[in-house]
Write a protein that binds this DNA or RNA. Structure first.
Lengths: 222, 222
DNA sequence: GGGAAAAACTGATTTATGTCAGAAAAATTT
DNA sequence: AAATTTTTCTGACATAAATCAGTTTTTCCC
């Protein structure tokens, strides 16, 4: 598979062909099946990854438990937050669906940061965005209870991931639980409750938001 | 109070006198008493702040509850994470002790990022550091129970804030609770328990770590 | 220095949520 | 298509931690 710089316009769009060829020389395109680990928390960070297709989970491992920080899809980047300081991966990342990623050597990225102020600025903006999202999640995870957290997750899927109130969430209940910081049983129970209360409709992994207002109010007050 | 660029060598050390004078023209030095709000979550971010003296808490407000993200002291910076995207303050920041901050206009910072690759890199490193700390905290807050969280907090104070196993923690039990994401009563109870179990000695706000190994094991397994 | 307010503390009670145990359904492999 | 594994689901139970209610101590400030 051939990656073009136009596939990631924010990151590579402005590069001259010469510089782009340097990037290409230090990159590979990798295909993963479902449920394969792309990078492992704690290992030395060697690459920054750009998602060409598929869906992955970015998660923190702790004592056999996973806390999913985010899901990444086509056009998105991961690994940028691990390139400085001690340069070990802050997170593990695994594929949820078959996935293709464009894997760029870390030093190429660092050079770009030093040589292209625009690239540096883009990186800062990206990091700020990830950081802001993380802060919102820390509030959701620590201040809200189960219903509110699940409502947040569903709204996040609808708004930010699928851009629709009706979607197939792809992930298992277990991943959903790991994203909401609760036990699998609790996640299942609450999804069922939301279904029974006709706030969402749920058939397997297919979700449809029926009463968005009530879901938002759960997110706010639950 | 006159701030010198050598006071913040990482940020301003490399600037020419000419550029430093531009920074100074767009900055003010501000004195705060105890318990004053320096910036308010949600307000437009207009400045980046460098701590000249004193101690502040950086916290997230949610429904009257505060979750303290970090404490900042002399030489440290805050507000950098709010300058891009929608440019509203991600956090509130309030003084814990009488405090002096050097407040620099956001556009000066943004210009520096664009003009000095080194400054941009430093900013990325700073953001990465904040981000990594936040991730460690999210794990502590969501995966550990009360004892482990309190142990983390005490170890953080000893290692990162005071650099000593014996310190006056300055903050109230309530702030400690807000930092650990627990109720004030729980924070008090656990601090007392740690004292009774001779893991720390506690007299008012004076803390001394007596059995560091056990505290670390609480952090790990509690 | 005395009064008021805030902070620190303690025990009893409630509750949210995890854990356990097992059944049904779906997905995957042979 | 059958067998096996994984995922989903449900109820009963256990428990960590919040809440409530009240006391004591410390800090603040007139």
């Amino acid at each position: 598979m051939q990656v073009k710089k136009e596939d990631f316009p924010i990151w590579f769009g402005q590069l001259t062909d010469e510089h782009w060829s340097i990037v290409l020389k230090n990159s590979v395109c990798l295909d993963y099946n479902k449920n394969e680990i792309v990078c492992k928390q704690g290992a030395f960070a060697t690459n920054v990854y750009f998602v060409v297709s598929g869906m992955l989970k970015v998660y923190k491992e702790y004592k056999g438990e996973n806390l999913i920080m985010s899901f990444v899809r086509k056009g998105e980047v991961f690994g940028l937050s691990s390139i400085y300081n001690n340069a070990t991966n802050l997170f593990s990342v695994a594929s949820i669906t078959p996935t293709t990623v464009f894997s760029v050597n870390i030093n190429v990225i660092k050079n770009q940061i030093r040589e292209y102020p625009d690239f540096a600025e883009k990186s800062i903006i990206q990091l700020n965005k990830e950081y802001a999202d993380t802060i919102e999640r820390i509030v959701s995870l620590t201040q809200k209870q189960l219903n509110g957290r699940m409502a947040d997750a569903i709204l996040h899927f609808a708004r930010n991931i699928y851009g629709s109130d009706e979607f197939n969430m792809q992930i298992t209940r277990r991943d959903m639980a790991d994203f909401c910081g609760m036990s699998t049983e609790s996640a299942i129970r609450i999804l069922k409750e939301l279904h029974n209360d006709k706030i969402i409709s749920l058939e397997g992994k297919n979700v449809k938001i029926i009463n968005k207002q009530q879901l938002e109010s759960l997110s706010e007050f639950g």
